[in-house]
Amino acid sequence: MNFAKSDKAAQIAADFTDATAVQGRSLWRDARDRFVKNRAAMWSLAILSLIAVFVIIGPLFAVWDNEEIDWDVMGDVAGMGFPSLASGHFFGVDDLGRDLYSRVIQATRTSLLVGLIGASMALVVGTVYGIVAGFVGGRTDASMMRIVDILLAIPMTLVLILLLVIAGRSFTMLFVALGAVSWLTMARIVRGQTLTLKNREFIEAARAGGVSEMTIMFRHIMPNLLGVVIVYASLLVPEMILAESFISFLGLGISEPHTSLGRLIAEGAGTMAYGTIWQLAFPLFFYVTIIITMFFIGDGLRDALDPKDR
């Protein structure tokens, strides 16, 4: 039998006999525990998950399609289009007689996507840019950061509008434009952190140990950056949603047949004087809930990952 001679088996045996070794608590685990203890953040996470579930399985219960016009109520939206289980318009209808329940689901999905995709674009571009600038240092760093400074001095929402007007208001363009304007602060933060880390003694220790620069970057700098990056990205998601909603409210964002919460709120706000308050209330409720929960989650992440910041 050469079972016991295989390297894998020996490894398992060693692990088994070393059961006495205390399992350490990594910073990640500490952070997770702190986050779980944060009640506001955990509630927010639960509520946000419910909304996400709602967006996914909500359409199964919809009686009306989001583009279908209910001709029966269209003539008297204020009198007959109110939310009701009987008519199948759970959230009522919009000004054109379309089912608001389906429209809100569609809009929430758009807004969540905008937040996630916009933030991840910022995350990828900003992190790579920041790490390169911080790690290479010297003149490269100086000129790269000069560009960021100049771009940061331009009002971003206006640039966003400019981009969308010039390149056309498509879904892809929206993501590209959001990513294009939001990576700057991320790059700045990551670069600052990289610089601090680069001068820490454990990086010097690795260098003295003959570890190559690339390995240092991946093994030591990246994992230590992750905390800050996660915190900032989590706060970027609601900001992206905010920005998109703002320009959609102005009528410069996503155009029909697509819709977003900002667009729905704008429509609701335009008609609220006629007594169709639900057209404002439902999108507003979803919007505010998403943003507040995301802020609480971001806050909880910051407290968990960067405890000295409290």
């Binding site: 350490g24 990594s26 910073l27 990640w28 820490r200 003694e201 454990f202 010097e204 220790a205 690795a206 003295a208 140990g209 030591h220 994992p223 230590n224």
Partner: peptide, 17 residues
């Protein structure tokens, strides 16, 4: 050629065992 640093905590990667 090896080196031992002043600040014991700062000279170890906080995310490594």
């Amino acid at each position: 050629l090896q080196i031992v640093f002043q600040d014991p905590l700062a000279s170890l990667d906080p995310r490594q065992t």
